[in-house]
Design a protein around this nucleic acid. Structure first.
Lengths: 226, 226
DNA sequence: ATGTCAAAAAAGATGCATCAAGTATCTTAT
DNA sequence: ATAAGATACTTGATGCATCTTTTTTGACAT
């Protein structure tokens, strides 16, 4: 069970939700992990009510599932589900990149470059945690630059579902998640929508290869057990 | 305040959520309507807890917003937000149509034809409620045929947000929402992905014109009031 | 009529007791 | 030693009391 980041929020409910989201996005939960409302309440030092609220929201996001009526768990990701999410991301992040390419300012492009630069350092230092965090930061900058808050929310939910699978998939090919970011930045600089879209699609397909492989390994393990 | 459909569910929480979703999707709430947990609890004949659970989920879906800490309301839709949602729908429903065209069975196509036929009758009978319901049923069949449950969930949330705006937008051009459904069915019959995608885009853009116009009227009214 | 302000009422957030259903553990007869 | 049944425990759902803050209301002055 991971440690949680304490967030200042308007209410406990949102603070817990935010902390659980962070933990999920950072891959600090393993697929199949069980969550217990009372345990979490003790960890957060609150009553069960704000925890239930947060859990229910996460269940609504499909980032957590009720395996049975009293059994709350981090779901496992099937190959077909991952492929579906990948198809959706290709369309949506493609749209974000297209739109961002049309409107990106040089200040915004500099932010992207800074993120990639920091990511280089994180990889060099072998800091996987920081690496995945900066990878996410890069991806979420595109809908933000594009001025698409609804899209941002949809992608946030998808990343929430992928969270438990991306963190430790990047061990082998450490550079995989970053090499494909440079062509995106170049396309944004040229305000080339088509190239930006294609570049982000490359990143999702090629950079995401280790993630798919990890999921396939996970499914094999499940199959062997059964 | 609308009447709610009572749904049999595993628990009260989900039953209330389902009923509120139905009400939202059917346009039985007006933008700006205020919801009160205690009032709803009385209407549903439950305590406040299951209502809070459901409201929180809807807030998470952005189908309901907290205008201020104690003021829960149906949000108004800005033009830019509607356009963003429309762009997203074009990509996602396009993907659903593409995929559906590749895998649709004749039985599934028959279901689509039946929906459109019933929709014709509803329009002829001037039954707006039934019309919007069947319009939705048509759109949600595509991700279902495509076998894309994640996509289905995303679109469901988007329709939840559009719900309060679509119902009464279809008064003037009653046929607008249905005429563009035929080319979709034809494309599915030919297993023509590209045509299916283009046909659903046409439906979203052209068939959705009255909705955009309604939103623009709503914004003008707001501006006048200020 | 309109704006201001204070008292009263309302409303969501939080904590907690209790319930029902499921799970684990222990007992006991074989 | 084992298996069936009984008992105790676990756990999310629900209801409800209470807290704090917001919203409403109404009196009053302009």
């Amino acid at each position: 069970m991971p440690e949680f980041t304490t967030l200042e929020h308007e209410n406990l409910n949102s603070a817990v939700y935010g902390a659980l989201c962070d933990a999920l996005m950072q891959g600090r939960f393993q697929p199949g992990d069980r969550l217990k409302i009372r345990d979490l309440a003790e960890q957060f030092g609150t009553s069960v009510t704000p925890i239930r609220d947060a859990i229910l929201r996460l269940v609504n996001d499909e980032a957590i599932v009720f395996r049975s009526p009293r059994d709350i768990r981090i779901p496992v990701m099937s190959e077909s589900r991952y492929r579906e999410i990948r198809s959706i991301r290709i369309k949506l992040e493609g749209l974000a990149a297209e739109t961002a390419a049309q409107v990106a300012t040089s200040a915004e492009i500099e932010i992207l470059e800074r993120i990639v630069r920091e990511n280089e350092q994180a990889i060099a230092a072998g800091d996987r945690m920081k690496g995945t965090e900066l990878n996410q930061a890069f991806h979420f900058m595109l809908p933000q630059i594009a001025g698409m808050p609804v899209l941002n929310g949809i992608l946030r939910r998808l990343w929430l579902q992928m969270g438990p699978f991306i963190s430790d998939a990047y061990l082998p090919g450490g550079r995989a998640m970053i090499d494909y970011h440079y062509p995106v930045i170049e396309a944004l600089k040229r305000h080339d929508s088509a190239a930006a879209s294609m570049a982000i699609v490359d990143d999702i397909l090629l950079g995401g290869k280790p993630v798919l492989e990890r999921i396939l390994r996970g499914e094999k393990r499940e199959a062997r057990r059964a």
